[in-house]
Design a protein around this nucleic acid. Structure first.
Lengths: 334, 334
DNA sequence: TTGAAAGCGGTACCAG
DNA sequence: CTGGTACCGCTTTCAA
């Protein structure tokens, strides 16, 4: 009944063995090029041909169950629109990890809290987890992952988590740099755009706090959704706010708002200085060109090798924190 | 030696059983709320507490090995910059699939050919594969996946693949619609931008071919990289090309080129009509506003339920093809 | 050079 | 109501 309707015939190594007229052990040796054992060339050929004929593909779960560990690197994603530079970084990272023979698995985790996420990830027994910051991981969550066999848990979030390696990406510094630049330009009353979209709090919160931390700046929080309507609505009630500058979370929000302000008759940067973050290409396409804060991401290769070292020798690298730098790119909008 | 340095103590259901003073079977029943069997409340509590105390997390590989099948839906990604509308779609899809209790696994597959990819995916024994078109799948590849237990292989590419469900996303129609619109506007000599970036051929090829297929249009292929330098270089040698319109693959390339053309002193749309695709928000931020072709994607919910039906009853839906529509959105640049 | 067999962690029969 | 046990597919000793 609950026969779980087995697919008619997923070929197993036993099928290959039968067809080749050898034992399952031999099949395993041949297909994995086992060095510790010598198999005659004719046998090898027979096995290879049988495998080919059946279209045999080994069962990853069975293999790792036997091995006692996986080569899975888990990359949680909630797919928030953090921008192209992020995608490029992910690309690089995946490449680099694959070269090191890891299996990169992106696990869509949006809408999960720390506990749920840690559990779900732990079920896959990844050898490493690289949490890019979409999910706030507690020390307890990190412990769960480690207990489940993760030899490296790396966070790229705004703050280090006890027990995890941390690549501290100081989002606060981005806000601080932006506010500092605006002060240099003679501005005082700075609006800081905070996206209305959910899921970006881990980034937007620290960016706002960073701006607030700068002495001499009067910071006002300004919510904005990523739509033209929202931007127009904000622009319409801009003047009473009495702000002479705005730092807009990132370039996409900045451009959206800048255009709306222009359409409302405000001059950039004379009436309002506008500043973005992330240094997207499109920021250079609008006029005036958008000033921005660029975050120096670690290269994918760098992070991949960090993961690899952590996996090979967990004790050695544990708890080391790297810091990323933020850089102001002044252009015409400030 | 090859002791595979077992992590000191990943807790197993046997550990939980021991601590609770019951058998592994009972642990399994309790933790899975098995309906077919009645367990006393005190026992349940003991088991739950033991599991909690040890931080027990079941081993997904072991479970699916036993079950004979997984609930994994594999979503290959090569992370090419196809645009935000794509990301939004992916988001929706993941949500919808999770609601249906599938585990969505994105598998970074860039740089793999069809054979390599199919093998790598098959090792995970996914119950369904949704190939968004980054990788060209042959009928043989589809067969490999099916043999490995995939009950649904869905392609969203430009063409249907025998053996797979296909959601035909007719990229050619996008090109045709763009060219048609430009002809209506009185243009004849149309440049079609083809990205220099690798990995987009499956999209750009058909878009170019679609434009070529329109009677009355003289189409010229125009390579362009996604950088300001490339755009400036192209703009500098634009006039001799004698083109009075350009269809630029998507909005991002279109905006990049449009800005470069403007900087080179050409008027849009008087001297050159510019057209994009994908209807990105930023296309409305530049002046003139960008005309574009929007592709009506299926909703994530729709696709998720298609997957679910295919998994439950493969025979029923097999080989049905859905078609997506392309829609011209005329604005100021044409 | 090859084969037999143990066992990785769970689940679900069947007995008790 | 609970425990013993036979698997799932694969790797890896140990013997032959």
């Amino acid at each position: 009944m609950s026969q779980s309707s087995k697919s008619p015939n997923v070929p197993t190594s036993a099928d290959v063995a039968r067809l080749a007229g050898v034992s399952r052990a031999t099949v395993s040796y041949v297909l994995n090029n086992a060095a510790a054992v010598r198999i005659s060339e004719p046998t090898r050929r027979k096995v290879r041909e049988a495998a080919e004929e059946l279209g045999y593909v080994p069962h990853a779960a069975a293999r790792s169950l036997r091995a006692g560990h996986t080569r899975i690197v888990l990359l949680p994603t909630s797919h928030v629109p953090v921008g192209p530079l992020y995608s490029a970084f992910l690309n690089e990272l995946q490449w680099a990890l694959r070269r090191l023979d890891y299996t990169v698995v992106q696990y869509g985790s949006l809408g999960l809290n720390g506990d749920e996420a840690a559990r779900a990830w732990a079920e896959l027994r990844p050898v490493a987890v690289i949490s890019l910051g979409e999910i706030a991981l507690s020390p307890h969550n990190v412990a769960t992952l480690k207990r489940a066999g993760a030899r490296a848990v790396i966070t790229l979030g705004p703050a280090g988590v006890p027990g995890a390696h941390a690549l501290v990406m100081d989002q606060a510094e981005i806000g601080a740099r932006a506010a500092g630049h605006l002060l240099e330009r003679g501005r005082r009353r700075i609006g800081v755009v905070v996206p209305r979209e959910a899921g970006l709090e881990l980034f937007s919160g620290p960016r706002l706090a960073g701006a607030r931390s700068v002495a001499g700046a009067e910071v006002e929080e300004v919510p904005l959704a990523h739509t033209e309507e929202s931007a127009a609505e904000l622009a319409a009630r801009w003047r009473p706010l009495g702000l002479d500058a705005v730092f807009a979370y990132n370039d996409e929000y900045a451009m959206l708002l800048m255009r709306a302000l222009q359409d409302a008759g405000l001059r950039i940067p004379e009436d309002v200085a506008v500043m973005g973050a992330d240094d997207l290409l499109i920021g250079r396409l609008l006029r005036p060109r958008l000033s921005t804060v660029r975050l120096e991401m670690p290269t994918g290769d760098h992070l991949a090798s960090l993961v690899d070292r952590a996996v090979r020798e967990p004790s050695e690298i544990t708890e080391r924190n790297d810091l990323m730098a933020a850089l102001v790119v002044p252009r015409e909008s400030t």
